[in-house]
Design a protein around this nucleic acid. Sequence first.
DNA 1: TTCATCGTTCGCTCCATGGCGAACCATTTC
DNA 2: GAAATGGTTCGCCATGGAGCGAACGATGAA
Lengths: 223, 223
Amino acid sequence: MNAGPDLTMLAGAVGDATRIRMLELLMEGRALVAKELAFGTGVSPATATAHLQRLEQARLIRATRQGRNKVFRLATPTVARMVEALMTVAVRGPRASAAPEPLRAARYCYDHLAGRLGMGITDALLRSGHLSLRRRAFVLTPSGEAWCQDFGIDLSSVREQRRHFAHRCLDWSERRDHLAGALGAALAARVFSLGWVERQPDSRGLIVTPGGQRGLKRHFGVL
Amino acid sequence: MNAGPDLTMLAGAVGDATRIRMLELLMEGRALVAKELAFGTGVSPATATAHLQRLEQARLIRATRQGRNKVFRLATPTVARMVEALMTVAVRGPRASAAPEPLRAARYCYDHLAGRLGMGITDALLRSGHLSLRRRAFVLTPSGEAWCQDFGIDLSSVREQRRHFAHRCLDWSERRDHLAGALGAALAARVFSLGWVERQPDSRGLIVTPGGQRGLKRHFGVL
DNA sequence: TTCATCGTTCGCTCCATGGCGAACCATTTC
DNA sequence: GAAATGGTTCGCCATGGAGCGAACGATGAA
């Protein structure tokens, strides 16, 4: 049994919805860069920086620089066990095991779509021949270029971004690759600006609106 | 892997210095009444009520009524494990294992003194014959009554309180009984009002002032 | 019955801090 | 070199909520 100032600092560090969601994101094992954590929690980069500094100061996460990126990971396995203990208590809350489902249905993975929604769109584009799967990435076919234009994606502005165009990203809930990279982000942004999906208030999950269900069915045959 | 509103509520419930100290107090095994928790964390009863309600709403503690008292205990062993996991992370902070020492030296146990200080005073009173140990409680001897008067404790007002006069309380760090009850509280209050001890800013621990060291040595031969 | 005492509720103040946008370095890419 | 991007810093606003005191039911002791 003991106490001390450390514990109050720890309490302050852990006791915030955004910060605990950051820890939760890092619990997936992969190290994430700052912007991913900002996107994943739905806050601005500036706000994310403040949170990450506080978590780092409390020795809960560890940061390493890679080029102009800063990648974060959980500091120690002890921290991981602590987060797990918190989750264990959380899931036996009022309505247990209701939480994971919306996440598996639709969520953001960084700046693109994941979950069954992201996989469904990716599959639809593959089936219709708009997208082709290569070893390290997806490739947009000529028919896919036409489809993008039709869907309202400005390919020229997407291509001039300095990042991978159509990367593969492993979906942890579906166990398969979905569309990521600049094209994945542009597609997600378009779907969002069409009002097809909305961010869930206190979760990383997304909600597909009624209009979105119709649109997704018409364009992709999903949902 | 999961998320959800439950986790944000849990984060909010845990993420406060006063509330986490309440959980810490309850980690000592014994169930505590509201006022004990208020005293132990150094807040007013009104503030304590708010905190306890929040902890109860988050299912971290459970309350049962006993007469006009309300006793609180940790809700489940799972919660205890969570608090322990938090402590485990906390103690490997910047300066590890520095925290327990001041607590073992001197602290409040509810409204009376505990730790080596509380034990030392109790032992001194027993050795000098001012206090006598009985099966269920301490007894103040005639010489002890005179001593109290000399020390500045108004015994008449202590006796008219509706609570046990000189209860025995098990010290978890010393593994022996120290003086509690109305007399123990009055003695602690007197020591406090003499400026011999001061509450440590962010801990349950007490600091013995230089003047207190002299006074304690003169009156009790301790420290 | 009368009076303490425990806990709660209410109203209020005040501080911490989460959040953002804008401006600013650092680094990479063309 | 120029341009774009990742991250940080700064200033500001708004709000949540921690804290208290006072007044109020409820319970138990005398």
